[in-house]
C-alpha cells in the first residue's frame, strides 16, 4: 500500500473518506483535520448540546474532543468509523463533566434545575397558539423547536442512546461501542427514549389528530 501523500490539495482532500483523511493527517497534512472538523462539528455540537443543555459547555466539550482526536490521531485504527471514535471520545468527556456537576450540588442545581431521573417533572411541549386558525400547519422552525424541547424531556440516561440513534443515525452496534453499553441495553434505552419522546410530543400529536 502506498503511503499517503502529504501534499494533496484541498480539493483532493474533500473527496476522501473520514478514515482516509485520518491517514493523511497522520502522514503530516494538517489540512485533512480541518476538513474533518468542518464535516463533524455541527452534528457533534448538536449531540453535546442535547446532552449538556448548555451551549458554552457543549462547545467546550466539542473542542476538547477534536483536540484529543488530533493529539491521538496516530492511535486511531481504521477498524471503526472515525465518527464512532470521535463520538466515543466526546461521550466520555460528557460523562466526566456530568459526573463533576453531580458531585457539586450547588453547580447541579444551577445547571440542571431538577433531578435528571425525576420523570414526574417532565414538561410536555408547549404548542404555539394557533390563533384564529386551529388547523394552521406548523412552520418547520416551530416543529424543530418542539422537537428540541421534546428531546430535552427525555431522561439523560436514555437521551444519549436515543439521540445517537434517532438524530445521528448510528447503528446499534456503533452506539454500543460509543457508549460502552451492551447491545441489549442500547436497545432498551432507545425504546425507553422513544417512549419518553412520544409522551413529550403528545400535545402536538393530539393537535394533529384533532386536525384530521
Amino acid at each position: 500500500m502506498q503511503p499517503m501523500s502529504v501534499t494533496r490539495s484541498g480539493a483532493d482532500l474533500q473527496e476522501l473518506s473520514d478514515e482516509t483523511l485520518m491517514e493523511v493527517l497522520v502522514a503530516g497534512n494538517k489540512a485533512a483535520f480541518e476538513i474533518l472538523v468542518k464535516r463533524h462539528k455541527a452534528r457533534l455540537y448538536s449531540y453535546l448540546l442535547r446532552l449538556l443543555r448548555d451551549p458554552t459547555e457543549a462547545e467546550e466539550v466539542a473542542q476538547e474532543a477534536f483536540v484529543r482526536a488530533y493529539v491521538h490521531a496516530d492511535k486511531y485504527r481504521n477498524i471503526a468509523k472515525f465518527s464512532t471514535w470521535l463520538y466515543t471520545i466526546a461521550t466520555n468527556l460528557v460523562r466526566n463533566r456530568i459526573r463533576k456537576l453531580r458531585s457539586s450540588p450547588k453547580l447541579l442545581s444551577l445547571h440542571w434545575g431538577r433531578g435528571e431521573d425525576e420523570e414526574e417533572d417532565r414538561e410536555p411541549i408547549d404548542l404555539p397558539d394557533p390563533g384564529d386558525r386551529p388547523d394552521r400547519v406548523l412552520e418547520k422552525s416551530e416543529v424543530q423547536a418542539l422537537v428540541a424541547h421534546g428531546i430535552e424531556q427525555i431522561p439523560v440516561r436514555y437521551r444519549e442512546a436515543f439521540v445517537l440513534r434517532e438524530v445521528n443515525h448510528f447503528t446499534y452496534e456503533e452506539i454500543a461501542e460509543i457508549t460502552g453499553l451492551k447491545l441489549g441495553t442500547v436497545r432498551s434505552r432507545i425504546n425507553r427514549g422513544r417512549g419518553h419522546f412520544r409522551e413529550a410530543m403528545q400535545p402536538l400529536l393530539e393537535r394533529m389528530r384533532g386536525a384530521e
Binding site: Y45, S46, Q144, L146, A148, E166, V167
Partner: peptide, 20 residues
C-alpha cells in the same frame, strides 16, 4: 410515522462562528 418525520427534522445547531 409523525414522530419519525419530526425526528428527521431535528435541528442541527451550529456552534459559534469562531469555533474553528
Amino acid at each position: 410515522r409523525l414522530v419519525e418525520s419530526w425526528l428527521e427534522q431535528a435541528p442541527v445547531e451550529d456552534p459559534a462562528a469562531n469555533f474553528e
